[in-house]
């Protein structure tokens, strides 16, 4: 009788330890996703700032067209990942619009200030790419945990569901071309 009691007690203890460890693993994976998401926010904000500066420079040459492009994008706190993806896609459009606009003004295109901003936007986009890959990597890890049995049972108890990826619109991104 005692042996059965000890065996059952041991099994229960192991289950409790496993439950706590799995729960912590899920929480840690979620924290990493949140950190990576804030990295995306930082990169998107930087991208928006640089694009705004590019538009400010452009305004000196084509005020009306530049102001039209400004109205396309808005960033706010607490956006969902699909809203972030959408904002990023709009920024792609904005950059494409600026490039088209600048083609008509060779002086602007050749100005040192504008060239510096072009370099900035490339670096910002590299950072955004890094944030996106890091975020999506963390989401993959998290989603794998919560759909794989038996950790899916713990995730279900915690009310966790699959996270959405930050999509870069590859087709649109490929269209963005920087001229030097």
């Amino acid at each position: 009788m005692d042996t059965i009691f000890y065996v059952l007690g041991g099994i229960v203890l192991l289950l409790v330890i496993w439950f706590i460890a799995t729960r912590n693993k899920i929480v840690r994976a979620e924290v990493k996703i949140d950190e990576a998401a804030s990295g995306i926010d930082v990169a998107l904000t930087k991208r928006f700032d640089v694009l705004t500066k590019m538009l400010d420079v452009t305004k000196g040459y084509a005020k009306y067209e530049a102001e039209t492009l400004t109205r396309v994008v808005s960033l706010r706190k607490g956006m969902s990942m699909s809203e972030r993806s959408e904002a990023n896609a709009k920024m792609d459009d904005m950059l494409r619009g600026i490039n088209v606009l600048v083609e008509n003004y060779p002086d602007l295109k050749a100005s040192e200030n504008y060239k510096q901003l072009q370099l900035s936007i490339l670096d910002v986009e590299e950072h955004l790419q890094a944030s996106r890959r890091l975020y999506n990597g963390n989401v993959t890890v998290f989603n794998n945990i919560i759909v794989t049995f038996p950790s899916s049972a713990v995730a279900g108890m915690m009310g966790k569901s699959k996270k959405e990826f930050f999509e870069a619109e590859a087709k649109k991104r490929a269209d963005v071309k920087m001229d030097f």
Partner: peptide
């Protein structure tokens, strides 16, 4: 730093 690692290792 995870982010910088991804930034460098494209």
């Amino acid at each position: 730093n995870d982010h910088e690692a991804y930034y460098i290792l494209t």
